[in-house]
Amino acid sequence: MWKEKAIRLGLLGSASVSVIAVALIFLFLFREGGEFLVSPGIGKLFDTRWIPVSFVNERYGLYPLLTGSLLVTFLATAIAVPFGVFGAIYIAEIAKPREREFLKPFIEILAGIPSVVIGFFGLIILAPIVKSVFGLYSGLNALSGAILLALMAIPTIIAISEDAIKSCPKSYRQASLAMGASRLQTLWRVVLPSSLSGIVAAVALGMGRVIGETMVVLMVTGNAAQITLSPLESVRTMTATIAAEMGEVAFGSDHYRALFIVGIVLLVFTFGLNVFSRSIYRRFGNKS
């Protein structure tokens, strides 16, 4: 009997690793970055400029990084949602079974392409296109980043939206068709509204992926830390800031701690989106 107990305990211990890991992530981000909040002080973060290396006055304002991340994320979502949702509708409702068997894994492959390869593709192929289409000096801007990020979010949005559309009970459709509604009306007025919560969850999850993505934005958004709403301007996201600057800072310096604060902000954002998406999915998920 003791053997059974030991095994059970071992498995329990393994299951706890995830919990411990999450706790450690929060703990160590605060351990390395927390001091910044006291000295030089949390007020330094509420500033409009990010100039971490300066002979005169270092400034650690998060606003340009926040607006950079948000601009790219919203643009990417705006591009990804129609493609993702329409793609899901097509795969779930319109495509023939054999077509579906090809489309699903093919789009899944997109999710597997390493982000650095997508960034590389963007740098060489997409950025010059954006540059010439809009007549810009450089194609490295928020729009280029957003297009690539949309591409990376689309598989997530398609997979989860398709699940949601498929989980709409058959009886709903039958009732609608029996009332004389066309297939299109049924889809628009019955199936989509009933799977809306799942689609919203899918989009939130996709946004979480987008805001946390590093390599693509580091390679193609130009990385100028400025506050702008224009898709054609160069921006610098929170993720890219950490990746670009962490290699060159002195451990324990204000700059080092500020980068960990950026990490905490990022973590809070993605955590929030995740919990949001999970709670919607749960509340409305099971209808049948």
Partner: peptide, 13 residues
């Protein structure tokens, strides 16, 4: 939560 942590934050951690 772990699945949603951005990869760069894993790097920081």
């Amino acid at each position: 939560t772990l699945a949603g942590v951005p990869s760069i934050v894993f790097g920081l951690f």
